[in-house]
């Protein structure tokens, strides 16, 4: 079954304005890990908001696990789709970590003991148990985002959308978040939609999609997309530094494959020079 399905969806922010999303057809299978790439303003965040009913489409049909997106189904869909947003400071409601994680679970009216269990589960899944009684203000950006993920997990959703959740983090924080979502996908079978402008983060995905001006312009495995790096540059996406190194070594006559994994590249270089 498809977790998310878009059929001919149009969306624009203003009445007469340009389309933010234009005739979009797109689907995500249950348990799949999809990366959505695009520069700022390519429409990728609009996609996330449409999926969760924070925006409603002008035209076309959106379904989540077969349930069509209507006002009546909004609550049902939101229980299944969790979103982690960009700014780590603007997603926490409560001044204590556990209270914040509990927020969603309280909203859907779970009994107290169950909420307690969900807090345990969610904080453990993001590795933040020891911060249960802390105040989010004093945590690092990566830790705050992990709390935001925990807050979403407490609702036990089937799909997790990360809407540029790593954009404001330092490299260490970015790695923490990517580790957590990869584990959720592999171990818990969580369907993950990772929206980002960092090509490196897309590497672990099963499939990558590139958006430009509200349309899907490229689609394939991360390796496929990476192969077509010249095309990527036309969509204002940069090749990661390691990709650039591969290309330059190839141009210099060295027989190394395209890879974004530095251990693998080192392995290949070692083979070539010895």
């Amino acid at each position: 079954m498809n977790a998310i399905e878009f059929k001919g969806v149009d969306f624009s922010y203003s009445e007469d304005g340009a389309f933010a999303i234009k005739n979009l057809n797109f689907s995500v299978k249950e348990g799949e890990f999809v990366a959505v790439l695009g520069h700022n303003g390519s429409g990728k965040s609009t996609l996330a908001r449409l999926t969760d009913g924070l925006l409603s489409a002008d035209k076309g049909e959106i379904t989540v696990f077969g349930t069509p997106m209507t006002d009546k189904n909004l609550y049902t869909i939101r229980k299944q789709v969790g979103i982690v947003f960009q700014n780590p400071d603007n997603q926490t409601v409560a001044a204590i970590v556990e209270d914040d994680v509990a927020f969603g679970a309280e909203n859907i009216g779970l009994p107290r003991e169950e909420i307690g269990k969900r807090i345990d589960f969610a904080l453990k899944a993001v590795g933040m148990e020891e911060f249960r009684h802390s105040t989010p203000t004093r945590l690092s950006g990566g830790q705050k985002q992990r709390i935001a993920i925990a807050g979403v997990l407490a609702l036990k959703p089937k799909v997790m959308i990360l809407d540029e959740s790593t954009a404001m983090l330092d490299p260490r924080g970015r790695r923490e978040i990517i580790d957590v979502v990869t584990r959720l996908n592999k171990e818990e079978g969580m369907t993950v939609v990772l929206i980002t402008h960092f090509m490196e983060e897309a590497l672990l995905a099963d499939r990558a999609i590139v958006m430009n001006r509200g349309e899907i312009v490229m689609e394939g495995t991360p390796a496929d997309i990476f192969e077509r790096h010249e095309e990527l540059i036309t969509y204002n996406l940069a090749l990661p530094r390691i990709g650039y190194i591969c290309k330059q070594l190839q141009a210099g006559g060295m027989d190394v494959p395209d890879t974004l994994d530095y251990e693998k590249l080192a392995e290949e270089i070692a083979k070539c020079v010895s």
Binding site: R172, I245, Y262, E267, I269, A270, V273, S274
Partner: peptide, 20 residues
């Protein structure tokens, strides 16, 4: 110290581990 190093430094270290 919990800091990162540049990609080139990582590559150099990985190569050194392989005797290069």
């Amino acid at each position: 110290l919990g800091l990162d190093v540049p990609l080139t430094a990582k590559l150099c270290a990985a190569l050194k581990a392989r005797g290069v």
